[in-house]
């Protein structure tokens, strides 16, 4: 019974298969670019969700890790010629140290205080990055030189980036799925519901919070490197971006916090439309786009507090009655 996969897991596998084969059929650079961005944002949102949805710690400062990852690998590449494949490891290590030193004390604060602290952390990093011109070139930003080659994580065509980001997304989704169906996942969800009640059941809340934080932060930092290598340009305002942090929250809440595919769905709904509008060029249209997302977020909170996927799942279960529950998962986390 625990071995069987749920319907949504099968759907995800089918979707992954389609996506893996897609570049054989679709050649449009624009389409591939859009999908790459969807994969990036979906991975970012899914990584955020490990801490935010699963563990219930709502960080609005995840861009801190994104930026540290991006700047570390890029600086090592530009200044010392170190390959980003190695550079991202350094970035990830730095993110881990940062998360331990700064975010971890903050996460001992409950709820909104942690959220506020995380915002302040990102804002400090952004301003420091702007100010410390000798290191980061400040607001001018850093340009990644175009040196194509597998060893530099730079390619001419879109396809390699497509597969890289898709594989990462599949990896993050699989990791989330694995966590949910393990002791770690159960403990995180229990802590999210009631930390003290979890503690008397043997859950070391500090250890598991730290675990969720490190996993989430490290993944985000790694994605910072990928972003830098794809966009060829980073600057404080785009990587240490409060807006990006908030967008990750938006994606996950709309899609569904307490689910594996929720953040992916959120990204799939939001990102393509946004990119399309950005291509059309109007600032005002982009404003309309995000205005709608803001309104959707409000409506989701009022009507569907669990987000789209868990709500749909519950409707589906109610339609099918207990037959579905006893046949498949018997109440065990999917």
């Amino acid at each position: 019974m625990s071995r069987r996969l749920s319907p949504s897991a099968w759907a995800a596998l089918a979707g992954a298969a389609v996506l893996l084969l897609l570049p054989l059929v679709v050649r449009s650079k624009f389409a591939l670019h859009n999908l790459i961005l969807v994969f990036l944002y979906a991975s970012l949102a899914a990584s955020w969700n490990i801490l935010g949805g699963l563990a219930g710690q709502h960080s609005m400062g995840h861009a801190a890790y994104f930026g540290i990852g991006a700047y570390t690998s890029t600086l090592l590449f530009i200044r010392l010629g170190i390959s980003p494949w190695i550079g991202f490891l350094a970035g990830v290590a730095l993110v881990a140290v940062f998360a331990l030193a700064v975010s971890y004390p903050a996460i001992r604060l409950r709820g909104p205080f942690f959220t506020l602290a995380s915002i302040a952390i990102v804002e400090v990093l952004r301003r420091v990055a702007i100010h410390w011109r000798s290191l980061t070139e400040g607001s001018v930003g850093l340009t990644v030189p175009f040196k194509p080659g597998w060893q530099w994580m730079i390619w001419r065509g879109k396809e390699p980036y497509y597969y890289l980001t898709l594989l990462i997304l599949i990896g993050v989704v699989a990791l989330t799925y694995g966590i949910r169906r393990s002791r770690v996942g159960y403990y995180l969800r229990a802590m999210r519901a009631d930390e003290d009640a979890a503690a008397v059941l043997g859950v070391s809340t500090t250890r598991y919070k730290l675990m969720a934080l490190l996993i989430s932060a490290v993944l985000t930092g790694m994605l910072g490197t990928i972003y830098a290598q794809y966009m060829y340009f980073i600057e404080p305002d785009s990587v240490f971006s409060l807006d990006l942090s908030i967008e990750l929250v938006l994606l996950s809440v709309i899609g569904g916090l307490d689910s594996v595919m929720g953040p992916v769905l959120g990204a799939a709904l939001v990102v393509p439309l946004n990119e399309f509008l950005r291509g059309v060029g109007s600032q005002q249209l982009q404003g309309l786009n995000f205005f709608i997302y803001g309104v959707v977020l409000i409506i989701v909170v009022i009507l569907m507090p669990n987000g789209i996927i868990p709500t749909v799942r519950r409707w589906w279960e109610r339609l099918n009655g207990s037959r579905l529950a006893t046949a498949h998962t018997k109440g065990v986390a999917r």
């Binding site: 995000f290 205005f291 803001g294 309104v295 977020l297």
Partner: peptide, 13 residues
């Protein structure tokens, strides 16, 4: 947060 996003972008529009 949703309200904040909506209002900012309303102004932008």
């Amino acid at each position: 947060v949703g309200l904040s996003i909506a209002l900012q972008n309303l102004a932008l529009m």
